[in-house]
Simulated assay, not measured.
Amino acid sequence: MHMTSAPHLLSEDRPEFDRLLDEALRTAHDRPELATLGERLNAEQLRTMAMGARALLTAAAAAEYDHYVKVREDLRDEALSAPRTTGDEDTGLDAGGGAGAGAVVAVLAPVLAGTAMLIFLLIGYSLKLIEPEPAFAETMLTAGWLFGALTVAGLLFAVIGLLVTAVRNGSTEVPAQETVSIPDELSRAREAWRHALLERGIVPFLRDALADPSAGPGYPVPRTPRAGRIPDLGYTRPDFTSPGSTSQGPRPGYTPPDFTSPDFGGPDREPE
């Protein structure tokens, strides 16, 4: 996915911004517009101010940065989509597998032979201390010294193998390049962005900061009057008043309902 606008730098490009800023501060006395560095603001103060306004400074070179990022992403996509050749890799794996097996044998043979030598010699000399001496004590010692000879032979074989491998690799080794080659298009896009960021963003910012007597570590963030704790939201509170006394207004007039008890008479008398 390509970026269409870049108000903020990607993480991999932020060190480049820091390097350009340090370079501008280091060579400030070579520029007439920055010659007053150190009279009112020092390099560390300017650097703090510029780091706080990084988004503003990078926006001055947004077009060049967009082009640089697009070219870089295109080259990465091409590298990922390029077909990989498997012939050389398979040959390398086969050769590496054979060399790996030989190295394992060359390392394990002396270790195993030396371990066996120690075991047999230790058992043989321990048996010679027993009275009467067992008949197979000499056999254990003979086996121990035999494994000792195998250990020496294995060590010599390992050393010779290492020397031969070093000579072979040295004759076929391809000298590594000191620097990774960068495509011309990417290099041009990167230099264009660096130049625009330095000349249209960083240097003008430092020049304005040095020329503005009111500039401080908070520049260029404008200072606005401090607002009240409760902002005016555009409406008034409802007017709640406590009920007034009887003298402040007429009381609601009503009469209680006229409840009369039913007139009950005798059983022969009709109610009225």
Score class of each variant (00 low, 15 high):
residue 5 S to T: 15
residue 218 G to V: 08
residue 51 M to K: 02
residue 171 S to I: 11
residue 245 S to V: 07
residue 232 D to H: 05
residue 250 P to V: 05
residue 3 M to H: 15
residue 248 Q to E: 08
residue 202 I to G: 01
residue 5 S to Y: 09
residue 219 Y to F: 09
residue 4 T to V: 11
residue 12 E to M: 15
residue 270 E to V: 08
residue 53 A to F: 03
residue 131 E to P: 00
residue 167 V to L: 15
residue 151 T to D: 05
residue 183 P to V: 00
residue 38 G to F: 04
residue 120 F to K: 05
residue 148 G to W: 01
residue 179 T to M: 09
residue 56 L to Y: 08
residue 261 S to K: 14
residue 193 W to D: 01
residue 210 L to F: 00
residue 80 L to M: 08
residue 72 R to N: 12
residue 234 G to N: 04
residue 214 S to N: 11
residue 63 A to L: 10
residue 123 I to W: 09
residue 8 H to D: 14
residue 217 P to F: 06
residue 242 S to E: 15
residue 8 H to R: 14
residue 268 D to E: 04
residue 59 A to Q: 10
residue 269 R to P: 00
residue 257 P to L: 06
residue 250 P to A: 02
residue 137 A to I: 12
residue 250 P to M: 04
residue 221 V to P: 00
residue 64 E to I: 07
residue 259 F to Q: 10
residue 215 A to D: 05
residue 121 L to P: 01
residue 105 V to R: 12
residue 142 T to V: 08
residue 3 M to E: 09
residue 185 E to N: 06
residue 10 L to C: 11
residue 215 A to L: 10
residue 151 T to G: 12
residue 104 V to K: 06
residue 198 L to S: 10
residue 105 V to M: 11
residue 146 L to W: 02
residue 64 E to F: 03
residue 20 L to E: 05
residue 176 A to T: 07
residue 119 I to Y: 09
residue 25 L to W: 00
residue 171 S to W: 08
residue 47 R to T: 06
residue 34 L to P: 03
residue 171 S to N: 08
residue 26 R to V: 07
residue 236 T to D: 14
residue 179 T to V: 04
residue 216 G to E: 11
residue 154 G to H: 02
residue 131 E to S: 07
residue 82 A to S: 11
residue 173 E to N: 12
residue 243 P to H: 13
residue 188 R to F: 03
residue 213 P to T: 13
residue 109 A to N: 11
residue 111 V to S: 11
residue 28 A to E: 03
residue 244 G to C: 09
residue 181 S to H: 07
residue 218 G to P: 01
residue 238 P to S: 06
residue 20 L to Q: 03
residue 195 H to E: 14
